[in-house]
Amino acid sequence: MVEVLHRIETPASADEVQALIAAAGAAGRTLEVVGAGTKRAVQPVRADALLSLARMDRVVDYAPEELVLTVEPGARLADLEALVAAEGQMLPFEPPHLTTLLGTAGQPTVGGAVAANLSGPRRIRAGAARDHVLGFAGVTGRSEVFKAGGKVVKNVTGYDLSKLMAGSWGTLAVMTEITLKVLPAGRTEATLLVFGLDERRAGELMTVAMGTSAEVSGAAHLPAFAAGRPPLAAEMPVTALRLEGFPASVQARAESLMAELRRFGRIEALDAGHSRGFWAQVREVEAFAADPRPLWRVSVPPAAGWRVGDARLGDPLYDWAGGLVWLLSEQPAERVRDAARALGGHAALWRGEGPAFEPLSGALAALSARVKAAFDPLGVLNPGRIA
């Protein structure tokens, strides 16, 4: 349960953010940093005040011809998606919103998506959120203002702090401005569906598909439980492959891929409209939204993804060609984490009782502590969000 805080700070500028962090550090107080707060429950924070970036929601600069977008962290994802779509462009990492899955209200922000390094199905082709952050400005837990990267696709060499911030969940610094690389959106898309495969066979199919020249931009497998849940409500397991681009290219690649995968069984194609709807369901994990069981986000090497289901831990849904497994499980946390670790990955509890992130150990823990000490030695920002 998320703690209700009586003190809420809503800065409207980087200067105000700096002043609030400086005052908190001087007084020995802590701050919970949020955008819209839609993912606060993933790992609740106990802090003295809430620092909301919701008022810092401006589009600072958008240069479609340069494929560059600069925004403040409170800018809403839905607004940015509409903005770039009007120019025939997209946010390449296809950030999920996950409000239905997590049962939260509000409009997710770009700052939250980058801080959590959230990426949708297109990650397997376009890369993660961190790969599209060209630069940012921020304020450390020491109340020091700094900038990293820049506003051009080709940037200078040096420490890649953008990748450090992405996935730090606001524990190192508060980003006050973010510059993203955008890309042209595909003119159309199509999805190939293969029905009735078990998880091992589906994993093999996705591996084969990713190894072709078809440029697959989405690969997911919904076993019987996930496929049978609304809104898809299919009668058997479904394995899906998405292709995006110019119409003639999509058609040619689809025909080639269908010929390559014919040995796996019957293949059907979804047109562009139905394809978009299907992948929105996968991205938002809608099949698991109404299920009360604890929900895990398991990251493993794609070729090993099917083994998560083989371990019989619960009910899985596979994205990223098997590299991302959403898992409904009532098994003890240690068993889920051990299974993920045995496959070369890790597991985070996104919905349920207990710590979301597994505590680090050994050299990794020591390195993390040094980074934290460099940015936020007093532990002002989001204390306890990442162990």
Rank of each mutant, 00 (worst) to 15 (best):
Ser13Pro: 12
Phe246Met: 14
Ala41Tyr: 00
Leu257Thr: 14
Ala22Thr: 12
Gly141Asn: 12
Pro73Met: 02
Pro383Asp: 11
Glu65Gly: 05
Ala214Gly: 05
Gly37Thr: 11
Leu31Asn: 10
Thr104Leu: 08
Gly88Ile: 01
Tyr318Phe: 07
Ala202Ser: 10
Met56Cys: 06
Glu255Val: 13
Arg55Pro: 00
Arg293Ser: 15
Pro231Arg: 01
Arg263Phe: 14
Thr179Lys: 06
Ile124Tyr: 02
Gly88Pro: 00
Gly158Cys: 05
Met236Glu: 15
Leu134Pro: 08
His221Lys: 09
Leu364Asn: 05
Val2Leu: 13
Met236Arg: 15
Val34Cys: 03
Tyr318His: 08
Thr171Gly: 02
Ala342Lys: 02
Glu189Pro: 09
Gly158Ser: 10
Ala311Arg: 13
Val60Thr: 09
Glu66Gly: 04
Ala23Cys: 08
Ala269Tyr: 10
Ser119Glu: 03
Ala63Thr: 11
Leu343Gln: 07
Gly88Cys: 04
Leu261His: 13
Thr10Lys: 14
Leu164Thr: 15
Arg283Phe: 01
Val298Met: 08
Asp319Asn: 04
Arg266Trp: 14
Val238Ala: 11
Gln89Glu: 04
Gly322Lys: 10
Thr10Glu: 15
Ser13Trp: 06
Arg312Phe: 04
Pro64Gln: 04
Leu327Ser: 14
Ala220Val: 05
Gly112Ile: 04
Pro121His: 08
Pro92Arg: 00
Leu257Phe: 05
Arg130Asn: 06
Ser162Arg: 03
Leu222Asn: 02
Ala224Glu: 14
His221Arg: 06
Ala116His: 15
Lys151Thr: 08
